[in-house]
């Protein structure tokens, strides 16, 4: 193999530790969702669970953040998410406004406290 990709060992790790454990959930979703009609009542529950799982993923990243984000105090991380949410709601549900406001708080926190 070339240097561009790396050796077979690295590729095997990508497959076994990355692609398969991630993709298996999509294929399980395909197997289940492929047979459901769009107006099925169960999809209301599935959407609620998907939303709540995402909420958990978001909260987990804020509590135990990866890499350099951990250098910003936890109060600032949650404060940034809350400030961004206020901007999101205040500016006609603009995702961009929410992200910009949240980032501003994170970066200010990193600059002054990190």
């Amino acid at each position: 193999m070339s240097e561009f990709i790396g050796d077979w060992h690295a590729l095997l790790i990508l497959l076994v530790a990355g692609i398969l454990p991630n993709g298996v959930w999509r294929m399980l979703g395909l197997w289940i969702g492929g047979g459901v009609e769009e107006d099925a009542e169960i999809l209301v529950w599935v959407r609620a669970v998907a939303t709540a799982i995402l909420a958990g993923v978001i909260t987990q990243i804020l509590i135990v953040p990866p890499g350099a984000l951990a250098s910003v105090p936890i109060a600032i991380r949650f404060g940034a998410a809350a400030a961004g949410f206020a901007a999101f709601l205040g500016l006609r549900q603009s995702v961009l406004a929410g992200v910009a406001a949240g980032e501003a708080v994170i970066l200010a926190g990193k600059y002054f406290l990190g």
């Binding site: 454990p21 999509r26 969702g33 459901v36 769009e38 998907a50 995402l54």
Partner: peptide, 13 residues
């Protein structure tokens, strides 16, 4: 990646 399953189930229909 668990989150991906209910997302796929709700989107594909």
């Amino acid at each position: 990646a668990v989150r991906l399953m209910p997302m796929v189930v709700s989107l594909l229909p």
